[in-house]
């Protein structure tokens, strides 16, 4: 009998992740109707528990999405759908979405656009994914309960635009700096502060930026905070 060729790990991940989506959609949907009270009134404690179950279902959905993204990158199937986009509007929209979550963690987002930025041909959804990843990391990776700022800047420099996200969080130790863009990599402190993370975010962000012919980098000092940046060539 002819032996079947084994699947590559990334293929298995992709297949399994797709299979996970259906039961997860079911769990999510059933929890949503219960919380909405479609099947009868529920008390506050029940609502809280069901809400926690829904949050964790959404967390699992996001993990599945990350797995699929990683398998796409690993198989060289990452594709960009470039359209003329206004990066400034994209950033403002993301800030609006993330601000309530940041505020709940006593983090406040400021944004400065330093000079005029033309519309550029980029994949808006993918770039949005990178910017959101930077900002969420800035919110998550901070020990201090005191009020903290997350400063975003966008500027044009020669034929590139540069976006940076600066925080005053835990920072990255020298020994860990080389591994920051590795998939699965998470420092011990990061695992403690955000146990739900997958360790895929920056790996995927790097792949997206490099596929867009840009560069990604960071500066960080342990205990003082980090600044993550990317540049993209201006193509109109």
């Amino acid at each position: 009998m002819k032996k079947e060729k084994p699947h590559k790990l990334s293929e298995v991940v992709s297949i399994v992740s797709h299979q996970f989506k259906s039961p997860l959609s079911v769990i999510k949907g059933y929890l949503e109707v219960l919380i909405a009270g479609d099947l009868g009134r529920i008390n506050e404690t029940q609502k809280e528990y069901l809400g926690d179950a829904l949050d964790n279902t959404n967390r699992m959905i996001n993990l599945v999405k990350d797995f699929l993204d990683v398998s796409t990158v690993e198989e060289g199937r990452l594709e960009l759908k470039k359209v003329s986009s206004d990066l400034d509007s994209i950033i403002k929209k993301i800030i609006e979405e993330i601000s309530p979550f940041a505020k709940a963690n006593n983090r406040y987002i400021s944004y400065n656009i330093l000079n005029s930025i033309p519309k550029m041909k980029i994949d808006p959804l993918k770039i949005e994914q990178v910017i959101s990843n930077f900002i969420y990391n800035a919110v998550f990776y901070s020990k201090s309960k005191k009020k903290g700022m997350i400063s975003l800047t966008l500027q044009r420099k020669d034929r590139n635009v540069i976006f940076c996200c600066q925080d005053s969080g835990i920072g990255i130790a020298e020994k860990d700096k080389k591994k920051v863009f590795n998939k699965f990599y998470r420092s011990e402190e990061a695992i403690t502060l955000a146990p739900g993370g997958s360790g895929f975010g920056l790996f995927i962000s790097k792949a997206i930026i490099e596929k867009s012919k840009g560069k990604i980098w960071f500066k960080s000092k342990k205990g003082k905070g980090s600044t993550f940046c990317f540049s993209l060539p201006i193509t109109t």
Binding site: S22, S25, V26, G29, Y30, V33, D38
Partner: peptide, 12 residues
């Protein structure tokens, strides 16, 4: 084709 989702959407 998912009976659980069919029930969910239908009842909603």
């Amino acid at each position: 084709d998912d009976v659980f989702l069919l029930k969910l959407y239908s009842n909603k």
